[in-house]
Design a binder for these strands. Sequence first.
DNA 1: GCAATACTTAGCCACATGGCTAACTATTCG
DNA 2: CGAATAGTTAGCCATGTGGCTAAGTATTGC
Lengths: 119, 119
Amino acid sequence: MANYSAAVEPASADLDGIFTALADPTRRAVVRRLGTGPASVGDLADAFPITLPSFMKHVRTLEANGLIRTEKRGRVRTCVLRRDRLAAVDDWLAEQRLVWEQRTDRLERLVTDPKEERP
Amino acid sequence: MANYSAAVEPASADLDGIFTALADPTRRAVVRRLGTGPASVGDLADAFPITLPSFMKHVRTLEANGLIRTEKRGRVRTCVLRRDRLAAVDDWLAEQRLVWEQRTDRLERLVTDPKEERP
DNA sequence: GCAATACTTAGCCACATGGCTAACTATTCG
DNA sequence: CGAATAGTTAGCCATGTGGCTAAGTATTGC
């Protein structure tokens, strides 16, 4: 049994960044594309109708929030998805589900055991 | 077998809103709290160090993006979580995982069957 | 070595976001 | 009825976001 006890949401600042990064369709598309393997900034950018500098901002946002890693070799910057960071979203959802389930259990008990008082 | 074919991300506009709504710690905390059951705006707001009008904006954002429903009876507005909408996040993650797995399969084949050419 | 390539930097702009105060409306309680 | 309660509306403000153009730098190919 692990750490289900956090009174405050764990890693809140990280989640801010991760959700913010995923809130933009261009960035989600990049994440999706990188799911199929690494790609250069230029190759990625070709798929979008915005200028390179604008596109670069998205790349920086994704990197700043840990969703991708990038590395420059020669004049080419290659981007790689960091799948582990998306797990943070998974974790948040799981935690949320846990909260629901606890509630469901409580309701269950309410039906099963009439000793409990009504809200 | 369902619809795995979408060339473009399904429900992109919805995801924009959902991820945006979840990108704020106050709003995530509200979602979490509502996981334990409905609550009035005032009760929810008590947990946060911001003014009521500011808090109301978050409530409106959550409602506008479908994460909660709210209803006013008398002078009290009650908020309820819409769990079904959070499933959209789940779906996006699942789709993303599908992309990875396809890639993994490809790499697998590359190792298993040397006929395939290198990238 | 010169030109093309692949970003990068700098700076500007419009609009969205999240916070605030002040003042207002609508219910409910005594 | 009148006061307290629970939101709501309006308007202001600083900062953040996503887009652009123009110009610069560093590699690479001929």
